[in-house]
Simulated assay, not measured.
Amino acid sequence: MPKKGEILVTQNGAVLQNIDLVGDIRVEADNVVIRNVRISAPQSSDIDQWGILQWVGHSGLIVEDSEIGGRSDTELRQAVMNDGGLVTVLRCDIHGMSKKGVYTSQGDIEDNYIHDPYWFAAADGEIDMIRVDGSPDPGTSLLIKHNALIDTTTTNSAISLFEADGGTPSGVTVEDNYMATAGWAIYAGGQTAATSDIVVKDNVFWTKFKDGYGYVTEWNPDGPGNVWSGNRWENGKPAPLPS
């Protein structure tokens, strides 16, 4: 029988595992591990803001080998939402969200399957498999590696980088991912935004974008440390920066 409601974690170093939960997990502690859990949005609820949240002032959350899913009748806005420091998301199946699969500016997102969001009018169609807002904390960065990011029904992004709260995305490495989107695969922060150290390499893009969309937009080629290399279409042909 699934547990229901919110689980609040306040003990540093806590390990939550082998849980089937209809509800959400809120982490107000450091170095918490969430492993082998299934989190489902409540049935016929108006809005579920997150599946897992790391709260402000806390860091070190690891989410691994888990499933987080929304419902067609419930708006799960963020599957994994990070308002704190570092977060690691490994080997998870994330789907059915209405806004963001993983929402963080720093940490490690590897070997995940993030896919098939639900579209809700109340969410304004703001759907990203991975969303970065603003700058990472000093001394941190974000690695997005070897994920399958798939959204073939809406016209939003696999990965979106945005200026926010006075900060500009920096220190983001996007490597060896597969991105299948009808809209933009990567929204790269802004052609004139002061992005830096954005490295996009060895990724594979599918070829069925809707008219007017493609694998990258708003890339600043002059941002210090910004690198685009080795990216290709799924047929093996190079995917260079658009001229």
Rank of each mutant, 00 (worst) to 15 (best):
I7P: 08
G13W: 08
G13Q: 04
Q17M: 00
N18V: 00
I19Y: 01
D20W: 01
G23D: 06
D30S: 12
V32N: 06
I34W: 14
R38K: 15
A41T: 09
D46R: 06
D46L: 01
D46M: 00
I52S: 00
H58Q: 08
G60T: 13
G60F: 10
I62C: 14
I68R: 10
I68F: 08
D73I: 05
T74L: 11
T74Q: 10
L76E: 03
R77I: 00
R77A: 03
A79L: 05
G84H: 04
L86C: 01
D93G: 11
I94G: 02
D108Q: 14
Y118G: 05
F120K: 11
F120E: 05
A121Q: 12
I127P: 11
I130P: 07
S141T: 02
L142N: 03
A148D: 08
I150Y: 02
I150W: 01
I150T: 12
D151F: 02
A158M: 09
L161E: 07
G167W: 09
T173I: 10
Y178G: 00
Y178M: 01
Y178W: 01
M179Y: 00
A182G: 00
A185Q: 01
I186R: 02
Y187Q: 08
Q191M: 08
A194D: 14
D197T: 10
I198D: 05
V200Q: 05
V204E: 13
V204T: 15
F205C: 05
W206N: 14
K208D: 15
F209H: 15
K210N: 15
V216D: 03
T217M: 06
P224V: 07
N226W: 05
G230H: 10
W233P: 12
K237I: 08
P238R: 07
P242M: 05
